[in-house]
Write a protein that binds this DNA or RNA. Structure first.
Lengths: 218, 218
DNA sequence: TCAAAAGTGTTAATAGTACACCCATGA
DNA sequence: TCATGGGTGTACTATTAACACTTTTGA
């Protein structure tokens, strides 16, 4: 299937690599897998796949996310293209990074096992295949810029959450500790975080107020 | 030249489109050209080209910039990948956007003429080929975020410049007017903008102090 | 009764915004 | 002498940062 245009230019494999963030046990986590094929079979890597004919790169990213987590229709943010000639030791592959934030409750664990995927702490990411560590770092910096002005945490938390959970999450994204009083005041100014009538009794004896994100009007 | 890996996946044309900003006549300008080939021959478009074998995408961007402006080694910022299936009416092309800021004084005008390129006002960009207008808008938003915290204007101005020139440039990037006194105070806090002993007598009768960027220590 | 997490205010410093007049000069 | 662009300061507001104690309750 040739074409009258552009024939004289080379073509390349184009892949999408997904930086999938979750929040478990009080820390931001990254989903990684054992690479199922060569080159680098068995090495830890981001989950990824190749762009198919007739599929936009955004669609590729969604397809990969769904395949590995069972989750459909989550907002994914493009991180940029990575196009060093030798970045893949097998053959030249130009890759587009995307990151996603997902709620581990929506997560299909059987797919994780099937794909030899696992969650690792964001502050303890192992050496990954190719330039994937660089992509993870860029994604995290990207998140850090947004965390205060965007309701990105909505995708990482359960529907109802305590302010301590939200604070712990933000601290884990930023890698710094926050002052509890200043944090709670800043939350009070955000219209998209609202108090509910519910109290969480699981994580403390006294009980903590549950909040939720209210995003309809944004 | 096949390979033992990845054979079953499709390959794509990958191009780089460059959003080249300049500063002339008190406004931010964009370099555009008449598309020299079909599809869309004669339409206005960004300047671009295809990624070659053995060339990283950053290198492609530099090569295109040099070809169209004569300028080598300018910082180019990647804007992201654009991968809608039908974005190019000829054949599927995945493109990576890069923007660059250049000083029109370094500019080789003969190359512009040769390539049927021209500068257009950023606030009056004509309809461009494919999704190029979208790329320009994204690049401008990207610039706007940086203009206050990064010395990006260094590349758009001559070595010595007046504060009025710098203010006019920032206003043109931001699309808003700035208060002269507030602007000048904020400049005074930036270590990378320093007063020189020179006075410009060309643009005013009284003469205006010339400043320069001091970037060695960043 | 005590350990553990929840909850709550004030002050100081910094950054940002609004605003109007005089100066020096060449034509 | 006057038109043109250059240059200057102050007061108000908003945002951010620092900081420590009391409450509730189940074990």
């Amino acid at each position: 299937m040739s074409n009258q245009f552009y024939n004289e230019y080379p073509k390349f494999l184009v892949s999408v690599d997904c930086i999938i963030f979750g929040f478990k046990e009080g820390t931001l986590k990254l989903l990684v897998q054992k690479r199922p094929y060569n080159p680098g079979k068995g090495e830890m890597s981001l989950i990824g796949g190749f762009v198919e004919e007739g599929e936009s790169i955004d669609e590729t990213a969604q397809r990969i996310l769904t395949k590995f987590t069972g989750i459909g229709k989550v907002y994914m943010q493009q991180l940029g293209a990575f196009g060093e000639v030798e970045r893949d030791p097998g053959e030249r592959v130009i890759t587009i990074g995307y990151y996603a934030l997902i709620n581990s409750a929506d997560f299909d664990e059987s797919l994780t096992r099937e794909n030899e995927a696992q969650w690792v702490d964001i502050d303890n990411v192992p050496k990954l295949f190719s330039d994937h560590n660089k992509m993870v770092e860029k994604a995290r910096r990207n998140l850090q810029k947004k965390v205060n002005s965007n309701p990105i945490c909505v995708n990482l938390l359960p529907k109802y959450f305590t302010l301590t959970q939200l604070q712990t999450l933000q601290e884990s994204i930023l890698g710094v500790e926050l002052d509890k009083r200043n944090f709670r005041r800043s939350v009070a100014f955000k219209d998209y975080i609202v108090k509910t009538k519910y109290i969480d009794k699981e994580n403390s004896k006294r009980g903590a107020r549950l909040y939720k994100f209210q995003l309809e009007d944004i």
